[in-house]
Amino acid sequence: MGNPVLEIEELRTSFSIKGDYHAAVDGVSLTVHENEVVAIVGESGCGKSALALSIIGLHDLKTTKLEGQVNFKGQNLLSLPISKLNKVRGRDTGMIFQDPMTALNPLATIGRQIEEPMDYHLKLSSAAKKKRTLDLLRRVGIKNEQRVYGQYPHELSGGMRQRAVIAIALACDPVLLIADEPTTALDVTIQAQIIDLMKELQNQIKSGIILITHDLGVVAEMADRVAVMYAGELVEIAEVRELFVNPLHPYTRSLLNSIPSNMEAKAKLHVIEGIVPSIQNLDRIGCRFAPRVAWVPEEDHETNPQMHEVKPNHFVRCTCYKNFHFPEGRVGEKDYVTS
């Protein structure tokens, strides 16, 4: 592993709902190293996107409270004034959004939109900017870059637009890329192309990448390390191979069991009991996953669940993983062998 580029410590992101603040990201600590892809995986509402936006302060500060530390390039981004933060955004960080149909300004050409971060962060002549932009377009796999440079977003297909969004993120050679569900809105074959492109680019640029996704397939293809998130907390962190071979937390195991392509055809899929609690109704005391594995005896959970390093670089929250197994009669589960 290279040097750390980003160290998140006890990050808590709370949103104001009817006057009260509720934490959507609740004490997350995570480190991203150079040349490393860290995937944050979880279902909708778990706080993974809120986490991504918190890193570079993209929340509306009137309704959001940020606590903890986001240490990046020797400064805590959470305490930076907006003018200083703007020197970091787009320069040292790049962001890739989910939906390329909406992530681009419909009234500006692709070329202009890729050059825009250079306007603020790099001192370049307009000819140099154009050259750099054309070069970026080629690097993200756009072959007729001269033509695309002058085109508007609506003239491009979804896959091409997502390539343009990636080019924007890479415009100033950032050391940290944050990709929020970069392939979710795309068709299967386009998704595969974008995954391959991002892997290829990662080999070139060697920056740290945070990959936010709900798709364990994308995780298996791209990530070096994985953090599983549930109800605002990270519940398991491990290297990708370790996580797929030896998942420990009951939530991780449940998720892996509910994916059809992971299971035999027509087999019954695992269903997690109950529903994801909303951030207002979340019981923040004890193991947050406990209500959804009701058969696990209470004493198996920790009263104040902590992250435990069970193996080097493999962390699990709470002690309930130790004796965890799916109840009998609930057919179809692959009962992963626990160490």
Binding site: Q191, L216, G217, A220, E221
Partner: peptide
């Protein structure tokens, strides 16, 4: 194009 679920085979 289906993402490979086994990280070893990526």
């Amino acid at each position: 194009a289906i993402p490979e679920m086994d990280p070893e085979k990526r």
